[in-house]
Amino acid sequence: MKSQIKIGSILFSIFKYAMLIAAAVISLLPVVVCVFTAFKTTDDYNSSSVLDLPKQWMAENFSIALDQANMLRGFANTAIVLVVVLTCSIFISAMLAYVLNRFKFRGNGIIQNLFMFASLIPGIATQVTVYQIMFSLGLINHLYGYMIVLMGTDIISIYIFLQFFENLPVSLDESAIMDGCTYFGVFFKILFPLLKPAIVTSLVLKGVSVYNEYYMSNLYLQTRELRTISTALYAFTGPYGNQYNYICAGVLITIIPIFVLFLIFQKQIYGGMAAGAVKG
């Protein structure tokens, strides 16, 4: 009886690890082949099978990709956008959530519903007319215009903060007010520092979506100097056609920074994801 159970659990372990290994291989294979290809010279690429290791590991494709697609500039632009948008939208949504959660006033419910309904509208759908508004406000082809649009379409973080405020006891505010604190003081000195977990969550979710954003960046930043990392990468479609050794180098350049960040902040990223889902 006991040995039967043991055999069963061994078989189950074998099955489990076989499945997990298969999943890991499928997840990594397309990227790994890309790594091989990125290090091949053009001759090597033309003559070998894509699954072969490069004969010599050559890094020249990377410098060509960086140069040709102006990817360094793309990184710089993306970095600026990330820092500004994340900072601003955290403050904006935390402040909004504070008012909506802590004060009862006429229109509070309506405003919350307005934000909820907005989250149903898929982003790309409204861009046809947002484009017109951007145009008439003169925000096209300016990095700040793009940043403003990104902040304006930020509903996830508002939700995360609203949920988080639900769980912060009101007695905190009350005792601070009795000690003579103003409402501003309550928010900035007492509550904001307590929001750390929610801030991490929204940094992760918003950060990933901004870094990966392509559609609006393509619409509103049309000059070469303003390209972000994703539009810079897209520029590879034209000139390189089938030269996948260059394209793969470009792809890897965009992946490397996020891979490093992932290795460092793995725990926070998983935590942020999970918290965002439960609450959002």
Binding site: L20, A23, S27, P30, V31, V50, S230, I255, Q266, Y270
Partner: peptide, 23 residues
């Protein structure tokens, strides 16, 4: 295993497009 399966989510959509165009 968690990391290997999760990582594709962090790659930007355009890069994923190229990876699979090649694939």
């Amino acid at each position: 295993f968690k990391g290997a399966m999760f990582f594709p989510y962090l790659i930007c959509g355009i890069a994923i497009g190229f990876i699979f165009k090649f694939f």
